[in-house]
Design a protein around this nucleic acid. Sequence first.
DNA 1: TTTCTCCCCTTGACAATCTAGGTGAGTTCT
DNA 2: AGAACTCACCTAGATTGTCAAGGGGAGAAA
Lengths: 110, 110
Amino acid sequence: MQNSKAELLQGTLDLLILKTLNTGPLHGYAIVQSIQRCSDEILAVEEGSLYPSLHRMEEKGWISAQWGRSENNRRAKYYALTRAGRKQLEDETAIWERVCRAITLVLQAA
Amino acid sequence: MQNSKAELLQGTLDLLILKTLNTGPLHGYAIVQSIQRCSDEILAVEEGSLYPSLHRMEEKGWISAQWGRSENNRRAKYYALTRAGRKQLEDETAIWERVCRAITLVLQAA
DNA sequence: TTTCTCCCCTTGACAATCTAGGTGAGTTCT
DNA sequence: AGAACTCACCTAGATTGTCAAGGGGAGAAA
């Protein structure tokens, strides 16, 4: 419960990463920047959250990793969605929409 | 990550409870039912989550408790929003809307 | 009197995130 | 050439919130 600093909703990080990778492979550092940019600088993913999440999802087979070189000529690990990952992205998106709608309903109750 | 069973988004329980109490004092059992009903049976609050949350918020001064009798003539602890609780409700509602919008933005990105 | 529902509670496990570090390689500045 | 900075990776430990799984008592209903 920080003051007004941007935090993640627990449980949404995997979804955000999967979605970010949906447009093509990216390395970790770029994923953070992409999420931050796409969210209007509201969401800030800490590296201490990012890498454990990436490793979890790789283990589960949702993403695959491959070493390469970044645009800045630095060694970087590129992550790509697998078929299972695309399925997971669909599922989690549906769950998010469902729960988000439910919460909104409660907040709009008389 | 259950199959399709309704879960809470971590971090939203306090908000849901505060909002539910906004219309008037309720006892714990009734809070659960109210959230469930208002959310179209999507959100199910476990008692093992509810009571710790209520006690946390009482400790923080957002709600106050008072023993009474339920509609069914049973002893029940009624919780009511305090002034600080109303403020907290406002704040958390704003944060939710902000973060919810941010996530939606990411999910809608090309 | 047995059973059911209502209503309260706690303990321990678990999962996700954050804090706070650390590494190394390439680039830029002085 | 050396220093400082950025990019990009990583991990250990603490913290937090939720869930699972219990338990108890009192009123109502069978």
